[in-house]
């Protein structure tokens, strides 16, 4: 499996991009050349120089440093959102898949309701109700995404529940926890991971979009979407301000999407 993953060039390249990004984000303190929030009006819109490798923004803050510090809210919060979504979806999906009958029916109808709303509108509605702030954005993202995972995991639980090796385990009276942790979860995870990776891109865009609209991460915290939002004010005079955060979002989102595609190729059992 590992060898197959390593042989796939797309997976290799995208994984290294993502890992490097995460590492840079984790050690932002050591790597960033300047304080991301230190404004100096004299230096505003300066071109790239030794002190400011990517130039400065409208308040004279170092764009590179802001980009590096921006990894934290953008990528880390997206990862956090995704993990929570998967955890919640798995929990509800497993409960639903195991309890055939009225409970299953109720959970699935709730899922149907959640799935019938357009996701961005739903997030806006939740943020509108709960107020502006990144916590609420994350909460809203989890709230609308879990249903996708719950539904998928439910169908997988039902599928694997009828696999012969699980029937055998039931026959000899293996404990349910063993069946779930050793048989169910490993099989489910390998399928979920593909979707989760593809969705990572969606979550990053979603958080950036909301920050761009001023609903997510609040100034002066560095966040790519918020940086774009600040840059758009000076689009006509200093269009190059958009480049750095825009490209950063483009690269990380494409990396996650391509990784998802690559993982699907590698993990697809039909190719084994």
């Amino acid at each position: 499996m590992t060898r197959k993953l390593l042989r796939n060039k797309v997976v290799l390249v995208t994984t290294s991009i993502i890992l490097i990004t995460i590492l840079i984000g984790a050690f932002a303190h050591q790597i960033a050349p300047n304080d991301p929030n230190e404004a100096s009006i004299i230096n505003k819109y300066s071109r790239s120089s030794d002190e400011f490798p990517l130039g400065t923004d409208h308040l004279g803050r170092c764009i590179l440093s802001r980009l590096i510090y921006g990894i934290r809210p953008t990528v880390f919060l997206s990862l956090f959102t995704m993990l929570c979504t998967i955890a919640l979806g798995t929990l509800i999906g497993v409960i639903s898949g195991y309890s055939i009958g009225i409970v299953d029916e109720v959970i699935m109808r709730i899922c149907d309701i959640m799935l019938s709303f357009p996701s961005q509108v739903m997030i806006l509605a939740v943020v509108g109700m709960l107020g502006v702030g990144i916590n609420n954005v994350i909460f809203a993202s989890i709230m609308i995404k879990w249903a996708w995972y719950a539904r998928m995991i439910r169908s997988m639980v039902i599928k694997y529940n009828n696999k012969n090796y699980i029937l055998y385990s039931k026959t000899i009276g293996t404990s349910r926890s063993f069946i779930i942790t050793r048989h169910m979860i490993p099989n489910i995870i390998s399928e979920v991971i593909v979707l989760a990776t593809l969705d990572m891109g969606w979550v990053i865009i979603s958080i950036s979009t909301l920050s761009f609209l001023g609903l997510g991460v609040q100034a002066p915290t560095a966040e790519w979407g918020a940086m774009l939002s600040e840059a758009k004010n000076v689009l006509s005079t200093n269009p190059s301000q958009m480049l750095a955060p825009g490209l950063a979002i483009l690269i990380i989102v494409s990396a996650f999407n391509l990784l998802g595609d690559g993982l699907r190729d590698v993990l697809d059992p039909r190719e084994v």
Binding site: N164, L167, Y168, T171, I172, G173
Partner: peptide, 9 residues
Amino acid sequence: IKKDVSVVF
């Protein structure tokens, strides 16, 4: 008595 039963598919 689950111990007494087994199965081959």
